[in-house]
Protein backbone atom coordinates (compact mmCIF):
# COMPACT_ATOMS: atom_id res chain seq x y z
CA UNK A 1 0.00 0.00 0.00
CA UNK A 2 1.35 3.35 -0.92
CA UNK A 3 1.30 5.60 2.06
CA UNK A 4 -0.16 9.01 1.35
CA UNK A 5 1.99 11.70 3.03
CA UNK A 6 0.18 13.22 5.97
CA UNK A 7 0.87 16.72 4.65
CA UNK A 8 -1.23 15.99 1.61
CA UNK A 9 -4.13 14.82 3.70
CA UNK A 10 -3.88 17.87 5.92
CA UNK A 11 -3.70 20.18 2.94
CA UNK A 12 -6.82 18.59 1.53
CA UNK A 13 -8.62 18.96 4.80
CA UNK A 14 -7.59 22.62 5.07
CA UNK A 15 -8.93 23.21 1.56
CA UNK A 16 -12.17 21.43 2.38
CA UNK A 17 -12.50 23.42 5.58
CA UNK A 18 -11.97 26.71 3.75
CA UNK A 19 -14.50 25.71 1.14
CA UNK A 20 -17.02 25.00 3.85
CA UNK A 21 -16.34 28.29 5.56
CA UNK A 22 -16.67 30.06 2.24
CA UNK A 23 -20.00 28.35 1.71
CA UNK A 24 -21.30 29.58 5.05
CA UNK A 25 -20.09 33.03 4.12
CA UNK A 26 -21.70 33.38 0.75
CA UNK A 27 -24.72 31.08 0.62
CA UNK A 28 -28.08 32.74 1.25
CA UNK A 29 -30.13 29.59 1.44
CA UNK A 30 -30.12 28.29 4.98
CA UNK A 31 -30.04 24.66 3.81
CA UNK A 32 -26.83 25.30 1.94
CA UNK A 33 -25.38 27.02 4.96
CA UNK A 34 -26.02 23.92 7.04
CA UNK A 35 -24.51 21.77 4.32
CA UNK A 36 -21.43 23.93 4.26
CA UNK A 37 -21.09 23.41 7.98
CA UNK A 38 -21.20 19.67 7.32
CA UNK A 39 -18.32 20.08 4.92
CA UNK A 40 -16.33 21.84 7.59
CA UNK A 41 -17.01 19.04 10.05
CA UNK A 42 -15.99 16.45 7.49
CA UNK A 43 -12.76 18.31 6.88
CA UNK A 44 -12.13 18.03 10.60
CA UNK A 45 -12.84 14.35 10.47
CA UNK A 46 -10.34 13.91 7.65
CA UNK A 47 -7.70 15.78 9.63
CA UNK A 48 -8.30 13.62 12.68
CA UNK A 49 -8.18 10.41 10.72
CA UNK A 50 -5.02 11.36 8.90
CA UNK A 51 -3.46 12.39 12.21
CA UNK A 52 -4.42 9.04 13.67
CA UNK A 53 -2.87 7.33 10.66
CA UNK A 54 0.32 9.31 11.04
CA UNK A 55 0.76 8.34 14.71
CA UNK A 56 -0.68 4.89 14.32
CA UNK A 57 -3.29 5.51 17.00
CA UNK A 58 -7.02 4.87 17.25
CA UNK A 59 -7.59 8.26 18.90
CA UNK A 60 -8.11 9.97 15.55
CA UNK A 61 -10.88 7.59 14.57
CA UNK A 62 -12.52 7.96 17.97
CA UNK A 63 -12.54 11.71 17.56
CA UNK A 64 -14.04 11.29 14.12
CA UNK A 65 -16.90 9.28 15.61
CA UNK A 66 -17.52 12.09 18.05
CA UNK A 67 -17.48 14.59 15.19
CA UNK A 68 -20.07 12.58 13.29
CA UNK A 69 -22.28 12.58 16.34
CA UNK A 70 -21.93 16.31 16.63
CA UNK A 71 -22.77 16.76 12.97
CA UNK A 72 -25.91 14.68 13.32
CA UNK A 73 -27.09 16.55 16.40
CA UNK A 74 -26.36 19.91 14.87
CA UNK A 75 -28.22 19.13 11.68
CA UNK A 76 -31.18 17.73 13.58
CA UNK A 77 -31.63 20.94 15.50
CA UNK A 78 -30.75 23.03 12.48
CA UNK A 79 -33.42 21.44 10.34
CA UNK A 80 -36.01 21.80 13.06
CA UNK A 81 -35.29 25.50 13.19
CA UNK A 82 -35.33 25.70 9.41
CA UNK A 83 -38.83 24.22 9.48
CA UNK A 84 -39.92 26.90 11.91
CA UNK A 85 -38.37 29.52 9.69
CA UNK A 86 -40.12 28.22 6.64
CA UNK A 87 -43.48 27.91 8.33
CA UNK A 88 -43.32 31.47 9.55
CA UNK A 89 -41.80 33.28 6.58
CA UNK A 90 -42.30 30.87 3.65
CA UNK A 91 -38.70 31.37 2.64
CA UNK A 92 -35.32 29.86 3.31
CA UNK A 93 -33.45 33.09 2.69
CA UNK A 94 -31.08 33.81 5.52
CA UNK A 95 -31.66 37.55 5.13
CA UNK A 96 -35.03 37.14 6.85
CA UNK A 97 -33.31 36.66 10.16
CA UNK A 98 -31.57 39.99 10.41
CA UNK A 99 -34.06 41.93 12.48
CA UNK A 100 -31.93 42.34 15.56
CA UNK A 101 -29.09 44.75 15.13
CA UNK A 102 -27.31 47.76 16.62
Amino acid sequence: MIAIPVEHCLLLSVMLFCLGLLGVLVRRNIIFVLMSMEIMLNAIGLAFVSGGARWGQADGQVMFLLVITLAAAEVAIGLALVLQLYQRYRTLDIETISKMKG
Binding site: V24, I44, A47, F48, G51, G60, L81
Partner: peptide
Amino acid sequence: LKYLVLSGVASAILLFGIALLYA
Protein backbone atom coordinates in the same frame (compact mmCIF):
# COMPACT_ATOMS: atom_id res chain seq x y z
CA LEU B 1 -30.59 30.08 14.12
CA LYS B 2 -27.85 32.65 14.45
CA TYR B 3 -26.46 30.94 17.50
CA LEU B 4 -26.64 27.55 15.82
CA VAL B 5 -24.79 28.58 12.70
CA LEU B 6 -22.25 30.86 14.36
CA SER B 7 -21.54 28.58 17.26
CA GLY B 8 -21.40 25.65 14.87
CA VAL B 9 -18.81 27.44 12.78
CA ALA B 10 -16.85 28.36 15.87
CA SER B 11 -16.97 24.80 17.16
CA ALA B 12 -15.75 23.61 13.80
CA ILE B 13 -12.89 26.09 13.97
CA LEU B 14 -11.96 24.95 17.45
CA LEU B 15 -12.16 21.31 16.46
CA PHE B 16 -10.12 21.88 13.36
CA GLY B 17 -7.49 23.48 15.57
CA ILE B 18 -7.52 20.41 17.77
CA ALA B 19 -7.30 18.15 14.73
CA LEU B 20 -4.29 20.04 13.39
CA LEU B 21 -2.57 19.94 16.76
CA TYR B 22 -3.27 16.25 16.97
CA ALA B 23 -1.91 15.62 13.51
